[in-house]
Simulated assay, not measured.
Amino acid sequence: MNPRIEVVAVDSLMVRLFDLIDETNMPWILAASQRLRAAFGARLVELVPSYTTLMVQFDLAPGAARALIDQALEGLRPDTGNAGRRHELPVWYDASVGPELPLLAARSGLGEAGVIRLHSEREYPVFALGFAPGFAFMGLVDERLATPRLATPRKRVAAGSVGIAERQTAAYPAVSPGGWNLIGRTPVRLFDRGREGYSLLQPGDRVRFVAVDRAEFVRLGGDDSPLEAQA
């Protein structure tokens, strides 16, 4: 691996570790994050890990920042001792809250039960946070579930909605517009200003979706209102 440093702004540099998105990237990204935080210390303004890169914002001269990055990443090895936290998110998979579930079932030829099984049997690493506070991009879903974003995004997607876009999956932390293919809903609160770090999920965490029925979903505090009724 040969990290590349790219200019983002006068006080920000992008460290590119990989060119392709892959689940095996995350141990390297986490290891680089730890080294960069230690190297910059109080001079680090912000560090944003993503699928293949880390964005470093700093409070020192750009040349000095480059030197720190080079020094910090020398001999980098994947971090096998820090795999992030593991989360289980209950999901009620149903067409009333996940209107693309029947579409994916027909397109894949798996039926709804097959889609639910494939989506919930994997453990997904969190690649990055973005789009909205607490929105965690995860992957990679089974290739049979891969499907493009909606041609016309919805104006309103319910909080907790679980969706798929290409080979990524995510759950909407709050009501917002969105173009992902919805297949269910989780009752878990993904973003909370009273929580340390705000977002339940962080890059490097691993997530398993667990299928529950409607009664359990409601018992856990989920809103079972059909998506159309919330539009």
Rank of each mutant, 00 (worst) to 15 (best):
P99N: 12
V56Q: 04
L47C: 01
A72L: 03
R86E: 11
V97T: 06
D79K: 03
M55T: 15
P78H: 06
S50N: 07
F58G: 00
E46D: 15
D59V: 00
A83K: 14
H87N: 12
P62N: 03
L44P: 13
R37D: 07
V97D: 11
D94T: 04
R86H: 15
L73H: 02
G84K: 01
L68R: 13
L73N: 02
T80W: 12
D59G: 01
E100I: 04
D59T: 03
N82W: 15
R43C: 10
P90W: 00
L54H: 09
L60C: 10
Y51F: 13
A67K: 09
A38C: 05
L76K: 03
A42I: 08
M55G: 14
R85M: 07
G81N: 14
T80I: 05
R43M: 06
D70L: 12
D79Q: 11
Y51S: 11
Y93Q: 02
R77T: 14
A64Q: 14
P99W: 12
L60M: 14
Y93L: 03
A65E: 05
L54W: 07
A64E: 15
Q57D: 09
T80A: 15
V48N: 10
R86F: 12
V91A: 12
G75W: 06
Q57I: 03
W92N: 03
T80F: 11
S50V: 06
Q71D: 13
T53I: 11
I69K: 08
A42F: 13
G75K: 05
T52Y: 04
A64M: 08
R66G: 12
R86P: 08
P90Y: 03
D59F: 02
G41P: 08
I69F: 01
A72N: 01
L44E: 13
P78Q: 06
G41T: 02
G98T: 07
D79E: 13
G63P: 09
G84V: 01
D70K: 15
P78D: 05
L44W: 05
Q71W: 00
P49H: 01
A72G: 02
H87C: 01
S96T: 15
E46A: 03
Y93P: 08
V56D: 03
N82H: 15
N82T: 04
A42Y: 13
T80V: 06
N82S: 10
A42T: 13
P90R: 11
